[in-house]
Simulated assay, not measured.
Amino acid sequence: MSDREQQRIEFLKSSGLADAARAPLPGDASTRRYERLTTPRGATLMLMDQAPAAESPPCDPAWSADERRAHGWNAVARLSAGRIEAFAAVAAHFRDAGLSAPEIIAVDAPNGLAVIEDYGDDLFARVIETGEPEAPLYLAAVDALARLHLVATLPSEIDGPAGRWPLLTYDAVALQGGVDLFVEWMPKLHPDLDFGEAAVDEWRAAWAPIAAMGEAKAWTVTHRDYHAENLIWLPGRADHRRVGMIDFQDAVLAHPVWDLHSLLQDARRDVPPEIEDAALDHYFDVMMVDRAAYRRDYAALAALNEARILGVFARLIARDGKPRYRQFMPRVWGHLNANLKKPGLEVVASWFNRHVPDARRG
């Protein structure tokens, strides 16, 4: 028996769940793992397992840009490093806002273990595959975002059952660091793409105004990975609480369109254009914002995120030996190519036209 398994057993015993049956769930691209627990009475819960030493440290709010780069990717991108205390604090913040985030039943933050409420397996993506109409789900997801974005008080730290956690801004350093994954990793996947020093300098200059805009307009809490594989349909609940949220431990302050484009320009599934338009119009109506300005920002930050995602997928394939991520790349390229035609992205579009041939953009 491994030391980690012994820790799990001891944690479940101390949580009164020593007799629960354990069933591991399939993994994803993270270092986190889950097990479904079934008690002798038939109730189910989830065991979240995130070994604290598995990743580089999260960002200290006091670190400069250079210090963040020295401490590694999680600090640059302002990721939580999967810390259980981050998940617990964000869950508490979402629940306080009236949203559906899992209740924390038991937690051992130093060892990276928690038992949380089980929302079941009805991910948006799965229930849509079984025939559930898409539009009501996406409109409910937008209602949940609007509810989150209407929360007036945003402290620099949020409280949870495992302690306080900083609520950091998704700033220009993080945004630029993310989009730079494209020029770092795409040539490793496709050696015919040769981005020399001058091309990389042009790349960074082209994206800098968009990254600066993203930081300047970062005024709301953002889930950061808000899409149909991280939302669970809870039809027994009312209104926006029908949207069960998971995988939100990397929440930051960001531009409100970030979660909108994650939801509506999904890397893993096609969202019909009419649903994207209806969902955006619904959000604009609820929030009473400048539609034209938000549309411009939506296209710009969506393009940045799609370039980032392509870099992440290239890294997963080239470095980590996970070829299944190839299947998502044509869809992401489709979104990016469409956004590059929008106003305000002319400089970025010119860079792609000069450095990435059409044969490599799909």
Rank of each mutant, 00 (worst) to 15 (best):
E5T: 09
Q6Y: 02
Q7V: 12
I9T: 12
I9M: 11
S14M: 13
L17K: 10
A18Q: 07
D19A: 14
A20D: 10
R22L: 14
P24D: 09
P24Q: 09
L25V: 15
D28C: 01
S30D: 09
Y34S: 07
L37S: 11
L37G: 11
T38H: 08
T38Y: 07
T39H: 07
P40H: 04
P40C: 03
A43L: 11
D49K: 03
Q50H: 13
E55V: 00
E55A: 08
C59L: 14
D66P: 02
E67H: 04
R68G: 01
A70W: 06
W73Q: 12
A75Y: 00
A75E: 04
A77I: 12
R78N: 13
G82T: 11
R83H: 12
A89P: 03
V90A: 15
V90E: 15
A91Y: 12
R95G: 02
G98S: 04
I104T: 13
I104N: 06
D108H: 06
D108N: 08
L113P: 00
A114L: 05
D121R: 08
F124I: 00
E132Q: 15
E134P: 02
E134F: 11
A135M: 14
P136Y: 12
P136L: 13
Y138N: 02
A141Y: 15
A144V: 10
L145R: 11
R147V: 05
V151I: 11
G163P: 03
P166S: 06
L167I: 13
T169R: 14
Y170V: 02
Y170P: 03
A174Q: 03
A174F: 05
Q176P: 01
F182C: 04
V183K: 01
P191V: 07
L193I: 12
V200A: 02
W203D: 12
W203K: 12
R204F: 13
A212Y: 04
A212I: 08
A216F: 08
W219C: 10
D225K: 03
Y226E: 06
N230Y: 13
P235Q: 06
R237E: 08
H240K: 01
V243H: 02
I246E: 09
Q249R: 04
A254R: 00
H261E: 15
A267V: 13
E274M: 15
L280Y: 07
D285I: 04
D285P: 02
Y294E: 11
R295C: 14
R295W: 15
D297L: 01
D297C: 03
A302F: 04
L304S: 14
L304V: 15
R308A: 05
I309C: 02
L310K: 00
V312K: 07
D320H: 10
G321H: 05
G321C: 02
P323M: 06
Q327V: 10
Q327F: 10
R331Y: 04
R331D: 09
L340P: 04
L345R: 05
V347L: 06
V348R: 00
N353P: 00
R354Y: 10
R360S: 06
G362C: 11
